[in-house]
């Protein structure tokens, strides 16, 4: 009986030591209730399977269906986050003429198919109707809440902004129509947010910044103070009077 008790005590002590050692090892391995590391890794594996399946479906899609998907994505996603856009840009270069024809036939184009065409066949993109491009880009600017698809004026531009700027004088009237729109601009990304917070950009400021580039002004020196930008906007608006 004594021997048995001693053995049990040894077992309890061994268990205690082992648990202590294990808890030290695991101390830096905290897991929030409900999301375990094992589940997380398993989820990532499942997402990989889903991703492969998505890519397989996209590969099978005909170009008109991809354009339809890009049209839908234009409402909610940035072009670089549209799977249909990625499929066209990465794998459908040979279909650029067909893409051009689909876009030209539409009375109203969405911005993502245009950005896809611009990426795979700049010459074809440049020969699309200027007003079609202007309208698509203006719609995109008007519908934007989070400005990652445009860039940050004093730092970098994204394809839609570059496309607008490329239009030069043809874009001036469209951009001027945004100069009274003081809707605030959001952006994703912590460092990006800090930049936006420092400048407090509004939609009119994006239009102003693109106009500055078109007019060969140094947009990197755009004033941080919205009041100073308002003055610049007033001057531009006065040009029309």
């Amino acid at each position: 009986m004594m021997k048995r008790n001693k053995s049990n005590i040894r077992i309890v002590i061994t268990l205690g030591i082992a648990l202590l050692a294990s808890s030290i090892v695991l101390a830096q391995d905290e897991e929030k209730p409900g999301i375990t590391k094992a589940q997380h890794l398993s989820d990532l594996e499942a997402l990989k399977v889903k991703r492969d399946s998505t890519h397989a479906v996209l590969k099978q899609m005909e170009l008109p269906a991809l354009v339809e998907q890009m049209n839908k994505d234009s409402k909610t996603r940035e072009h670089f986050n549209s799977s249909a856009y990625r499929e066209v840009v990465n794998n459908r270069k040979s279909e650029s003429q067909a893409l051009f024809e689909i876009i030209q036939k539409q009375q109203k184009a969405a911005y993502i198919p245009l950005m896809a065409l611009r990426k795979i066949n700049k010459e074809a993109y440049d020969s699309t109707d200027v007003q079609l491009r202007l309208d698509a880009l203006a719609d995109a600017l008007r519908e934007t809440i989070v400005y990652n698809r445009w860039g940050i004026p004093h730092l970098y531009w994204q394809a839609p902004a570059k496309s607008m700027i490329e239009l030069g004088g043809d874009a001036e009237k469209t951009l001027k129509s945004f100069l009274s729109d003081e809707s605030p601009c959001g952006i994703m990304g912590y460092e990006e947010e800090l930049e936006m917070e420092a400048y407090k950009y509004r939609r009119c400021d994006y239009a102003l910044a693109m106009l500055m580039v078109i007019r060969d002004q140094n947009v990197k020196e755009i004033p941080k103070d919205p009041a100073k930008r308002d003055k610049m906007i007033e001057e531009i608006l006065a040009e029309e009077e």
């Binding site: 889903k50 991703r51 998505t54 986050n81 970098y156 994204q158």
Partner: peptide, 11 residues
């Protein structure tokens, strides 16, 4: 998570 594709914040 709807299709497993990656999302980014810029080009």
């Amino acid at each position: 998570q709807s299709d497993g594709t990656y999302l980014y914040i810029n080009e």
